[in-house]
């Protein structure tokens, strides 16, 4: 739900009827994909603006009532605030933990790489409920006071989101050839912190930015783990779930859910757009000596 529209391959320049058919097929595919993403969002948008929408193809009439009442509801606003703070903290903590770990595993001690990579695959393999249960068991042993608190929820979100940060950051370290750049920095006489600040960070920002977005989005949408680990921690997914559960048949409940969904979508969409904009052209920048030789110049 958070990704921007997928990039489509550059048009094939092969001429002739085959080329035309190919272009038509590409256009059809692109259109189909576009509809697949757009239609549900349009439906939700219409629902958030509809007075009544039952029997017809389109709503009977439109209103901004649901938007106004949603944005004025202190419970929903508090849930948004909690969700944003939680997602931001999750992304920040994960970046702070993962970047040094990935750097260490790549540059200083490649032997720990298999360990780091395995642990970065575990959250994909285990259901979040299992992770949540493990977190409760573990915190019950080492820090019972943490149970049910906001910090423990942050920790839980960090645990499920860190693989996204790791793979994004590790990938951009590989793309930048960070081992070689670090060695070059050392032969230039730079101390480690200068290498990290002036060479490593500037060249892996695309990975950090997209990894943070993925961690943010993971946390933003997470329901099961929050429900299990946090006592009374009220986020947007939890509000949404309770809105569905407590549906009374009364008009307006689902319309306000549609409003909340649209706002969530908009937040993540804007963030994705920022990431895409920020990372444009970064890949090409990492290829030194990529320019073609100017024949008039010396090598």
């Amino acid at each position: 739900m958070s990704a921007a529209a997928p990039a489509v391959a550059a048009p094939n320049r092969r001429a002739g009827a085959g080329g035309t058919a190919r272009r038509a097929a590409e256009a059809a595919l692109f259109l189909g994909l576009g509809l697949y993403f757009a239609v549900p969002m349009i439906a939700v948008l219409l629902y958030s603006l509809a007075t009544r929408w039952t029997a017809e193809v389109l709503p009977e009439a439109y209103t901004l009532t649901w938007w106004q009442s949603t944005l004025a509801d202190p419970e929903i606003l508090a849930a948004f605030q909690t969700t944003l703070v939680l997602a931001t903290l999750t992304a920040a903590v994960d970046v702070a933990l993962v970047v040094p770990a990935a750097y260490w595993a790549r540059v200083r001690n490649p032997r720990i790489r298999p360990l780091v990579e395995t642990s970065a695959a575990i959250p994909f393999a285990l259901p979040y409920l299992v992770i949540g249960f493990a977190l409760l068991q573990f915190s019950g042993i080492v820090a019972p006071g943490l149970q049910g608190t906001f910090p423990l929820v942050v920790l839980g979100h960090c645990a499920i989101a860190f693989p996204f940060v790791y793979w994004a950051v590790d990938g951009s370290m590989a793309a930048a050839g960070i081992e070689r750049l670090s060695e070059a920095g050392e032969t230039c006489g730079a101390p480690p912190w200068q290498i990290i600040r002036r060479i490593v960070f500037p060249n892996i920002t695309p990975g950090i930015v997209s990894g943070s977005l993925l961690a943010f989005a993971t946390s933003f949408g997470e329901f099961a783990l929050t429900q299990m680990v946090g006592r009374g921690i009220y986020t947007i997914p939890i509000w949404s779930a309770s809105a569905i559960r407590s549906y009374s048949g009364e008009s307006g409940d689902f319309n306000r859910l549609a409003v909340v969904t649209m706002i969530s979508f908009f937040v993540l969409f804007v963030l994705s757009a920022i990431v895409v904009y920020f990372n444009r052209g970064q890949a090409a920048r990492l290829l030194p000596g990529a320019a073609t030789v100017d024949k008039r110049e010396q090598p």
Binding site: A284, P288, A290, A291, T292, V293, E297, Q298, P299
Partner: peptide, 8 residues
């Protein structure tokens, strides 16, 4: 660096 040739 990406704006110069390999020799450069």
């Amino acid at each position: 660096p990406h704006q110069i040739s390999g020799g450069q």
